[in-house]
Structure formats: C-alpha cells, structure tokens
Design a protein around this nucleic acid. Structure first.
Lengths: 204, 204
DNA sequence: CGGGAAGCTGAGCAAGCGCTTAGACGCTCC
DNA sequence: GGAGCGTCTAAGCGCTTGCTCAGCTTCCCG
C-alpha cells in the first residue's frame, strides 16, 4: 500500500495516463519476477488494458525497462550531486548523501531493484548510456570522500575501493528491504550514514 | 580463464562427469544472463551435449538452480560458522569471517551471482530451505558481533541492523566484482575486513 | 557371445512468448 | 455531420521455450 503509493508517486510526471500506468505496472512486475520472467501480457493486465495497447506507448518491452532505468538513474545521480555540492563539511555531506540515497532505495525498493539489478537486460546502446550515469554517481561519492581526506577529516587508505564499498552498501538496500519489516527507510538511512562515517573517519 | 577454473574447481565433487559439466555450464550461463533468460539448450550446448541429455541428470531446469544454490549456501554457511567457532578475539574472528566470505564471493563471483541474485526463481519448497540456510549465516555474523559487544571490544548501537549491513556489503561483491579489474580477491577481502572493523569498533 | 542397463541423440510436441494487424470506438475541429 | 486522429481490442502469426520419447550406441557382467 505504502509501497504502491510510492511506486506511483515517483512516476507522476509521465503522460499520458496510460503510459504512466504501464510504467508503474512494469516496475512492480519487473521487481517481483525479474525482467525476463515478466510477460508483456502481465504488464498490460496490471495496467488494465489489452496486451496490444502496450505497443501504442512503447515500441518494445525493453524500451519500458530503459525508461525505468534512465529515470531511476537520473534521480539517483541528482540526489548524490546535490549532496556533493551542498554547504558543509565532508562528513556532513557524506552523511547526507548516504542518508538520502539509502532512504530512496528503501522507499522505492521496487524501482530500485529494477534499476540496480536488471541492467543486464538492456540493449547494448541503452546499457552504455546507463553505465555513464552510474560512473557519474560514483564520481560524486568519490569527490566527497576525497574532500574529506584533503581536509584531514577522513582517514581512507583506498579511496576508490571505499567509494565502491559505500555505493555497494547503499544500493544493496533495494534487494533486502522489506516494507513489512521492523525498520523504516528513515531509520535505515540514519543507521547507514553512521556506519559509513565510521568507515571513513580518522580512527581514534 | 582464472574465473572459469574457479567455477569448475568449486564443483569437483559432483559425479558423474556429465552432471558436473552441466552444473558448471549452468552456473556460467545463469551468471551471465540470469536464470530466466538462459535456455536449457544453451546449458546443454555449453556442456557439449544435446538438449535432451540434460534431463537424464536433472529433472528440470529449476533443479539445476536448486543444486547450485544449495551447495553455494552450504559453503557460505560453513565458512562463516568456522570463523564464528574459531579461537581469538571478536575482532579477529569478525575480520576472518569477512575476509574469507568476501574473497569467496570475488573468486567465485559467477557462482555467487547465481546463489545471491537468482533465489527468486526457486520453487517454493526449495526457496524455503535456502532461506533457512541464509538465516543461519546471518546468525553466525550476529553472534560474533554480540560477542564483541559483550566483551566491550565493539560499540554497536543496532546489532541486527549492523549484521544486515555487513552481510549485504559482503554479498554485493559478487555483483560488481570484475576479474579483469585492478583488485584481487585477496585485496578486496583485506579492504572489507578493515572497513567492517571500523564500523563496529569502539570509537576513540 | 548375449543381454540389459546407462548415457545419449534427433525429432518434435504443447504451450507460451513478443509483437502485429484489422478494425472499431470516441474525440476534436471545421 | 463527417473527416481525421489517437486510443484501444480481438485475433493471431511466427518463433522459442521446457520438456518428452523412440531408438541407437556403449559398456559391464556372466
């Protein structure tokens, strides 16, 4: 319910209405079963239309995945870039980046699952484009960590390895997060921000 | 090459020869394309036989996935349980657990990808069995962290949340690890053991 | 040498797939 | 009022899928 509301909410700016219904239906189906196990008949059915209607709005099933993947990655990148460019110390900016990124992957864990784990089903040219967006996200995190090292706030022997680990930790939230579980997205965001700061800060 | 050798090596005790070839072929195919996108014809072809020969050794395609998943999870659990039961401080045992677990997910990243990310394709009863093994793995990590807290070595406000984060961090290595990349499995294991200790240790 | 199990193949079946087509509906605009 | 357009459906095409089966070979055991 909350999850479904969130799924819909994130795609509010897609028009016409039928196209938006198709995208949200596809997100849910892809997240539950995976791209390859999802049929176009299933997507159309969830959106309340016949199988053929899908092809009026999207040329192929893969184009639906591309749309979802592109929008999701653009949003991720925007969040991380905003945290990087904000005022404040490197610790504050890193904590914000992790908190926001993790919270998004928990709240929108269906979208996150598709965005992060169904990349391999994209066509070659679409895949290349998405990989570009991912590299920019990685650069945003790395840049904050480098600032912290330069300022003497952080003690990080392996900057790119730690960047990878931080991103990996945040992303994997989409895989295991359960909306019926004990923790809210806010709580997980706060916990992870704390854990990441411990990973990079000057040791005692 | 190294990766393929590792893929084969991990399944050395399966007989007869044809069954082992099928399993290693299935691991590679599932890891590359995912379970649903892999055809039984592809698996049989990689193992050097006709599509029909697969069904002499395994009743269904899902049974192949189950076999891979079960053996992989049993090995994971054995590694973590051994680290839990070893001599030494909680710090030493946690570092060993992470180092070994991460190294395995890097060395056997094809197997790891299948084991960790294709669970959802298992039949309901097989899935339930695997979930039991996963819970035991989680308990092993949690137990080491609890020991560290009791001994005053660790400062962990949220034990189960941190346990989840540690496991998640290790598991996700299978997703991003690239054998042609700069880092060896040993190096990643050492880096991650250090990062995890920083997450749990008393802050100075 | 003979018989039966085990391993394997070529051919193919039923079902389900992504996607297309022909045609009908309702809307706007002149 | 009817032409034109965007939206949608029922039907179905061509293909691939997981899986089966009759029959062939190979090898062990007496």
């Amino acid at each position: 319910m909350a999850a479904e509301a969130a799924t819909g909410e994130a795609w509010g700016d897609i028009t016409p209405d039928a196209a938006r219904r198709l995208v949200t239906a596809a997100v849910q189906a892809f997240a539950e079963r995976g791209y390859h196990a999802t049929t176009t008949r299933d997507i159309a059915g969830r959106a309340g239309m016949s199988p053929a209607a899908l092809y009026i709005h999207y040329k192929t099933k893969e184009e639906l995945l591309y749309q979802i993947s592109k929008v999701g990655h653009q949003r991720s990148l925007a969040m991380l870039a905003e945290a990087r460019d904000a005022e404040g110390t490197a610790s504050e900016r890193l904590a914000t980046a992790v908190r926001v990124f993790v919270r998004w992957h928990a709240e929108h864990h269906t979208t996150g699952r598709v965005v992060q784990y169904e990349l391999g089903a994209l066509a070659a040219d679409h895949y290349a484009e998405i990989v570009g967006l991912r590299r920019q996200s990685e650069e945003a995190i790395r840049s904050i960590i480098e600032d912290g090292v330069d300022d003497g706030e952080f003690d990080v022997p392996d900057v790119s390895g730690t960047t990878l680990a931080v991103l990996s930790l945040c992303i994997d939230v989409a895989r295991w997060f359960n909306p019926d579980g004990r923790r809210t997205p806010d709580e997980i965001g706060a916990l992870y921000a704390d854990l990441v700061l411990r990973m990079v800060r000057q040791t005692g």
